[in-house]
């Protein structure tokens, strides 16, 4: 599979990363390398092999349904670039 410059530009847009034409070219080459490697992996026939998602030994830890966190507004807002009273603020987004 080959990756064209348009697809790279679209991925950058989806990830909100601004790329110059030159950078698009660079990433196109680098990502093409990754895709080539995946293509190589795809040569292995895994038709009857179930996807391995974990080792089968690990179980997710589940929490009890209790309120144990929150009520820490100042901490939560501490890194906000801009705030107004109890709120984060962002440039207006309206549709």
């Amino acid at each position: 599979m080959s990756l064209d410059a348009r697809t790279v530009a679209k991925m950058a847009r989806l990830a909100r990363v601004g790329l110059s034409d030159e950078q698009v070219h660079t990433y196109q080459k680098e990502m093409q390398g990754i895709i080539g490697w995946v293509d190589q992996l795809n040569e292995v026939d895994v038709t009857d092999v179930p996807p391995m998602i974990g080792t089968g030994l690990a179980q997710p830890r589940l929490r009890d349904d209790q309120v144990t966190d929150g009520d820490c507004r100042e901490k939560v807002l501490s890194n906000a670039p801009d705030r107004e009273g109890p709120f984060y603020t962002v440039p207006k987004v309206v549709e």
Partner: peptide, 17 residues
């Protein structure tokens, strides 16, 4: 997360990191 799921509340108080 362990933050409260209750409706309402003072803004940004039912929020964990």
């Amino acid at each position: 997360s362990g933050a409260s799921a209750e409706y309402g509340g003072e803004p940004n108080t039912h929020v964990s990191l």
